[in-house]
């Protein structure tokens, strides 16, 4: 017990901790602040240009030169596109995730590698989907259209649906499925019980996919084209909101740029609304479990 450590400089050690803590708080504030900052900037710049005309009318002649009209065609185009692709993605994605969780043994090679694949696909950028879809469309002789956009965005959103639902299925207590099976249920019947259990979560998954679909540019840039007309036919080019923002922003005319900010604000509202819905649903899911 004779050995003693050198002077321990405890004050310096504690000061280091304090400094680190301040740095950590600053980082946290900066990161959370960035969100409010982005929304604030768009709100500040976009609000003066936002008008009822903007969201209730299609562009009139010379709209992109600063004349009258609105971006209703783009809003509707985006909604159609997002609704259709999210719908298809849900119909395809739910069976896939149920299959991977209930039909295939959980830790089998198939289940694991398929889940890994979806994780990886989740990260593939939409420009890659867009590029390949565009080439296939040229090959098949389809021109840029709402349909092309829907196909591209569906491919993009399937991994989101599968991954989110897979996460949800992990939270289903194993007892629930076992009890159902022990009553003599088939796997499909068990799947229906499980689906009921995670229902609020499914809407969350759908909303997530919807948010991603409505905001995507790179995927629709090549495949959907752009149009000043209201979207009426699935085989015609259609305007989408993000693309409308993008095009208006590159205009040198201040009035048109201002409309870009207003359009950005509309998109922000749509996204915030979706996020709010997911949040409320998540709270409901939690309650449901208790």
């Amino acid at each position: 017990m004779a050995r003693q450590f050198p002077n321990q400089q405890i004050e310096w050690r504690l000061r280091k901790e304090k400094i680190a803590k301040i740095l950590m708080q600053l980082s946290g504030i900066l990161i959370t602040g960035s969100l409010f900052f982005i929304v604030g900037t768009i709100l500040y710049k976009g609000l003066p240009y936002l008008s009822w005309e903007m969201i209730s009318q299609a562009p009139q002649g010379g709209f992109y030169l600063g004349k009258g009209g609105g971006i209703l065609n783009a809003i509707l185009g985006s909604l159609y596109l997002a609704l259709a692709s999210t719908g298809i993605a849900t119909l395809v994605g739910i069976p896939i995730s149920l299959y991977l969780n209930l039909y295939v043994p959980k830790n089998s090679f198939t289940a694991r590698s398929a889940k890994l694949l979806f994780d990886v696909l989740f990260g593939i950028p939409s420009i890659v989907y867009g590029a390949i879809a565009f080439s296939i469309m040229i090959w098949l002789g389809i021109r840029a259209s709402l349909l092309g956009g829907i196909i591209t965005i569906t491919l993009l959103t399937i991994p989101i649906v599968v991954r989110t639902i897979d996460e949800l299925l992990k939270t289903v207590p194993i007892d629930l499925t076992q009890v159902t099976f022990s009553l003599g249920a088939t796997r499909w019947e068990a799947a229906r019980v499980v689906l009921k259990y995670i229902r609020p979560g499914i809407f969350t998954a759908i909303l997530l996919a919807f948010g991603r679909a409505i905001g995507d540019v790179a995927g629709v840039l090549l495949t959907t084209g752009f149009s000043d007309n209201m979207p009426k036919y699935i085989d015609e080019p259609a305007a989408t909101l993000p693309l409308a923002i993008f095009f208006q922003l590159s205009s040198p005319i201040p009035e048109v740029q201002g409309r870009a900010y207003a359009s950005a604000l509309v998109l922000t509202f749509i996204i915030l609304f979706i996020v709010l819905c997911t949040h409320l649903l998540a709270a409901k899911q939690k309650k449901h479990k208790l």
Partner: peptide, 19 residues
Amino acid sequence: LMNVLAAIPPVLYGVWGIL
């Protein structure tokens, strides 16, 4: 809040970048 940040579409980040 991080989920909100993740949900913001790229084009809006671009607008923010320009502004």
